[in-house]
Amino acid sequence: MNYMFLIYSQEIAEGLPPEDAMAIMEGHRAVLGEAAAKGILVSADALKPTATATTVRGNGSGYLTLDGPFAETKEQLAGYYILNCDDLDEAIEWAKRIPTACKGATGCIEIRPLHGVQIPAPSAPKA
């Protein structure tokens, strides 16, 4: 059984001081390294901040592309795709094709670019 782990975090404008950010990265590396060593790691990455988000919402007759993250509290996370697109326009085209009514009523797709964090290989020596 694959489980998805969603990391929720409060965004602060100035970001973390470098040493704190390093400590958190180390924490991730430790967990990911362990999971990789056990052979259970499927995929993981960090999302760029919500300021880089775009929301695509179908409205029956067409699609609305909007700046910013999705903010409708009635809608719940129902799944995810990770696609390697050339640019945001290609990503938006894909977003329009992804069904969003999985859980009953209609929803939207939030597009967030990934950082492309390097994940430790299973054999990576742990510090």
Partner: peptide, 24 residues
């Protein structure tokens, strides 16, 4: 600054859209 960062980070393309996207 924020808009330029988004263009860069989310990779908003710098191109004339293809005909099927032009109208929107």
């Amino acid at each position: 600054v924020r808009a330029k960062r988004k263009i860069h980070e989310a990779r908003i393309p710098y191109e004339i859209p293809p005909p099927h996207r032009l109208a929107e």
